[in-house]
Structures are given as structure tokens and as C-alpha cells.
Amino acid sequence: METVLEIKNLNKRYKNQYALKNVSLSIQKGEIYGLIGRNGAGKTTLLKSIVKLIDSTSGQIALFGASTEKSWVKALRRTGSVIEVPVAYESLSGWQNLAYYCKLRGITNEKAIIQETLDIVGLDPKDKKKFKHYSLGMKQKLGIAIAILSRPDFLILDEPINGLDPLSIVEFRQLLKRLQQEQGMTIIISSHILSELYHVATRFGIIHYGELVKEISKEEFETLCQEYIVLQTSQMDNASRVLKEMNHYQVKIIAKDRMHIFDDSHQINHIVILLVQQQIPIDGIYYQKQDLENYFTSFVRDGMEEITYG
């Protein structure tokens, strides 16, 4: 399988502070790579380094195998990107903006390409509205339309879901899947909205204080995020002892009155009976499944230590 992007030991330092620290990752053709991180974690810096908007301090980036200045610029012709916010000419309509970029990139059969691109992103080709009067969702769509105008092999999207309403988010998710499946694009996407990222990405990378602290595929994540039982009780120590010693359950204490119980058999009735027999009060007990947001939060909060269920 073709490696679209290979990053090795990438560092970016601003004075005494590292914006990126020893970041290494690779993205294979056809993947949708979700980049997760808090504000200022280094996501945009990483994406800007890939597209050469900023120079890295040290390390290597190979885009489509190209790492020299000249070949990199050539490789960038196979990419499209929306970094930070979508930008277009405010006094032009969506169609006119695309016509401008078609002329600039020497794209022939301009009319057909613009029509098709607007169809892909779901903008009305007959809409004469100027870019400055677009809603945020429409701006995001036009930003992507400009990025995919040359039908790139690799699409780089920085926080594209920010500010979108729920309906637009669903449309956006469908758009990304279409681009991957119908156009065969490889995509790297950063976002805060982890629930949405979970739906579209095939692999995730967690970036924290400039370091890529965890990479996990969707399959690995689903295996890892098994269903568990949440128990709320005022006698945490007793409950923990009983569950561990008498039934060898794996438990993780989350708060002073709450624990997670991990067990493949999902015998919630058995646990209730056991605790009642030991006269341990139950304030609440229910099933829950770890989602990407919980995973990320726990990961960052727990000081980047691997989450264990024991």
C-alpha cells in the first residue's frame, strides 16, 4: 500500500517552547486519519508543517515520498487543504471563486468541473450569493470545494466541523465518506468534536503539548472500548474488595463514590446480588461504553498513561 505521508521525529520550536516534539506518524493511502488534541496542542502546527506554511525546526516529512524542497512543492499539487479557516474572495460567488481557481490552475472544461465540485460539496451552482454573505457551513463547503477542485489524492482539513450546526455536521460526515469512497482520497482531519471524528476516521492520533502520545486504529479502539458497568456506592473500599477477591472482577475507581467494572459476561444481576449479600448499598448501577471523547479525556487527564482496566 502506498504511503501518502511519512513524518519522522518532527520538531518545531518557538524560542524556548516546543510546538511539536518528536512527532512521527505515517498515513497510508485510503485512510482517514483523525488528529485529536486540545487547543494549542500542536494540531494546526503539524498540518501547516505538512503543507509548508511553516518550516519545521528539525525532523523529516515525506509527502508522497518527496522530501526535498522542489519535489515537495510538486507533491503538494496532489494535495488539497483547508487550514484554520476556509478562505475565498469575498466579493465573488461560489461559482466565481471556483472559476478563479480553475483559471489559476489551468483546469480545462472549467464549467463541468465547477458543476461537479459544487454537487459533491452540496452547494447550489445557481446561487449568486457572494462568499461574504455565506453561512459558516457554506464557507466550509466552499473551502473544501476549492481544495478538491484539482481532485487531489490527499486532503488536509483543519477543524472543518467547527461552528457547524448538527445537520451540517451530518452532511459533512457524508461528504468526507463520499470523498474517500468515490474519489479515493486519503484524508487527515483535526477536530475537537470527537464524536464526529469517531464516525469518519479510520485511525486516530492523540497530540498533547506537541507530542503525538497515542495512535490507535478504529478497530483497536473498538476492541479496547468494551462495555463496562458503572457502580455508584458510598462504600467504595468494601465494594472493590468484594468484587476483586470474591469474583475476580477487574475494577477501576473513577471517583470516591463511583467505579467501573470490566467483565465480558456482563452479569449485572450477579453483581447486585453479591453486593446486597455483603450489605453494601447500591446508589446506582448501569452499563456504559467508552467513547472517543471519554477515551481522550481520560488519556489526557491521566497524564498520558495507558488506560488499563484492572
Binding site: 503543507v51 494535495t79 487543504s81 484554520e84 478562505v87
Partner: peptide, 8 residues
């Protein structure tokens, strides 16, 4: 950005 990130 639209130009510099697409091979110019």
C-alpha cells in the same frame, strides 16, 4: 494559503 498548499 489556497495556492501555496496546492503546489505553488
Amino acid at each position: 494559503k489556497n495556492q501555496l498548499t496546492s503546489g505553488v
